[in-house]
Each structure stands twice: as structure tokens, then as C-alpha cells.
Design a protein around this nucleic acid. Sequence first.
DNA 1: TACGAAAGTGCAATGACTACACTTTCAAAG
DNA 2: CTTTGAAAGTGTAGTCATTGCACTTTCGTA
Lengths: 186, 186
Amino acid sequence: MTEAIGRRERKKAQTRQALADAALELFLARGFDQVGVKEIADAADVSVTTLFKHFPSKEALVFDQEADIETALVDAVRGRPPGHTIVDALRKHILVDVAESPDDAFLRLIESTPALREYSRRMWMRHETALARAIAEESGAPEEDVACAALARFALASRELIAAHENPRRAAEEIFARLERGWRTE
Amino acid sequence: MTEAIGRRERKKAQTRQALADAALELFLARGFDQVGVKEIADAADVSVTTLFKHFPSKEALVFDQEADIETALVDAVRGRPPGHTIVDALRKHILVDVAESPDDAFLRLIESTPALREYSRRMWMRHETALARAIAEESGAPEEDVACAALARFALASRELIAAHENPRRAAEEIFARLERGWRTE
DNA sequence: TACGAAAGTGCAATGACTACACTTTCAAAG
DNA sequence: CTTTGAAAGTGTAGTCATTGCACTTTCGTA
């Protein structure tokens, strides 16, 4: 009973995938705002109601495989190689995260659609609390410590800045070197 | 012709004010989501169409007097007392800005309404570019400098954190002391 | 095999916002 | 004054995402 996850769940996943696929194709072809949910539902051959049972909003259709970004983020901090600072671990992780997005058309879609930009930023920022907690524990500070919360927020906020820069690596180094100096264990 | 801004403009301003007033009163009484734009328009005795000629969105009704927050922000950096660092000027300005909001009900309305929180944050963040430029010029860095952009972003982003803390002053000192250390002129 | 939860459907509604085709009002040029 | 034209306002009818409701269908399982 470990993997025989019956036809039911399979069909569900299938429907979800069909929706995400149809949506992405239509969005890429004509732009986010030029496609209505009805059209997407039709393309995936389900009702609009069903679409919203699978995805909480039109924007969510684009960010299908949200997966465990948060886990990866927290793990990067918790499981950093010995001798490395938290700030350094964050820099590396964000840099990798920014770099490994080769799908240009997809990125362009998001960047050119205000609603999607906003949604993406929000998704990313949602991990602030978890990250702040991890940082606090790892640095022996009290949970709720403002400095840790600030570091978490700043690190997450810097992502967009780094991604937008012509030379992400240099931007990341510049920014995180300063965070390093500020947050060095006193 | 300097101040005789005819009855026309006066009436316009009047209508705008009536809308903002009606909206705020209704929102405070029953909550943002429990009031429809139609109702606000009726209360101000204008049509819904007119309401949207004055305000681009329902949220905008709440932030009527947006005024020159940006100017004040940039001025705080540019006109800081001699001998004071940019970071210090930012800390002071933000602290004042956070402190001088005595209208509790108004703040509670914003904090308790996701749409308004988001709108407010966005309004605040919109000044990032102007602030970044001011910082760059004041510190003699090239315009477009990443470190300056990051400082602008972080300073703005810290506002929410500071405002949410039980002791804003201490939170601001904690955060800005670290920014100070990181961004000290090398 | 029968039962119940989960997946899906269709319809009607809500609520913000827009387009359109007006009417009214006022300022300023003639 | 009077004409005139742009700005302010109106009402209607729409679009579009999102939700509630009252279903039917489809499995997994007791």
C-alpha cells in the first residue's frame, strides 16, 4: 500500500497537470491577462469550478510545482558546511536558486506580468518566518530575535535585486559581504 | 491667478474628500471587505463611475493623502545633520514615521486587512528607486550601485518589522546598528 | 456489495473594475 | 455676453475572477 495510490489519485494528479499545462501554454502564447480561466478549463476539458478546486487562484496555475523551496532554504542554513557562516550559506543558496532558471520564456512571462511578479515575490517572502526561526536557532539567539528576523527578510528581499542584476554573482557578493559584516557574531 | 482655483477644482476636491471620508467611516465601522464600492459612492452621493475617476482602486480610498512621503524620505537622507551617517538618518526618519501614527483604529484597519497591508507595503516600497539614487549620490557611489540599492531596499523593508515590534525604538536600533556596520564607508 | 468521501459539474451570484455614450458645468476666448 | 470645448459626472451594460450551492459520478473500503 506504499505506492498503489489507486486510480483516483492518479486521475486527480492528471487533471491538475492538464490544467497547469494548458494554462502555461496559453499564457506563453498570448499573455497572462489575455487568457480567461474559462478558456483554460475548456482546454483541460474540466469545468471552471474544478479548476478552482485544484488551484486557489489564476496565478497559482503558473507556479505549479512550488514544492519545498522552504525546506531547501532552511536546510541550506541548517546543513551548511562547518566553518561557514549563515550569511554565506544564504548567499550560496540564493545564487544557485537564481542561476538555475534557464527557461527564458517562462521567466519573461512572470517578469512581464505584474500580477505574477507580485505572486512570485509573495511566495518567496512567505518563507521568512521559517527562515528566521532557523537562523535564530542556529545562531543561538532567542527565537523572535529582531536581528534574525531582519536578516531573514533582507536575504529573501535581496533575491530579486540579485536576479535583476547583470552580474548576479558580483551583486550577491557585494550585498552579502555587507550583511556578513553587520551580522558577524559579536 | 495663483490661488483663484475656480469653483470647478474646488468641487472636484470636495467630491474626492467626500468619497475618502465616506469610505473611511464605513470601513472603520464594518471592515474593508464588508463594504462595497457602490455603497461608498452612494454615501458620497456620486456614481460608482465617478468614484473610480477619483481613485484607481478601492484600496486607494484609504490612502487618500499619500502626499510627499517620498520627498520626506529623500530629504531625510540629503539634509541629514553634518556628521551623521546615511544609515542613521534613515533610522531616525523611519522611527518617526512609525511613531507618528496615533490613530489606532486606522492602523488596526490596515493591519487587519490583507489587501490593505499589501497596498500599504507596496506604496512604501515604491520609493526604493528614488531612495537608492539619493543614497548613491550622497555616498559618492555610482548610480546603479548594488550596495546602495540594497541599502534602500533593506531600510524600507525594515519598516514593517520595526512597526510590528513591541519596542520599535529598540528594534530600529538593533537593525540599523548592523546595517551601519555593514555599510560603513570602507 | 453497499456506503461515504472525494472529484467533478453547472448555474447563479457577487464584487471590483471598464467601456461607452451620454449630459452637465464651468472657464476662457472671442 | 455668448460660444465652445474640455473636464466632471452619470447610467447602463458589460468582463472577469472567484464562491456557494445543489447536485452527479467515481472510486476505495468496510
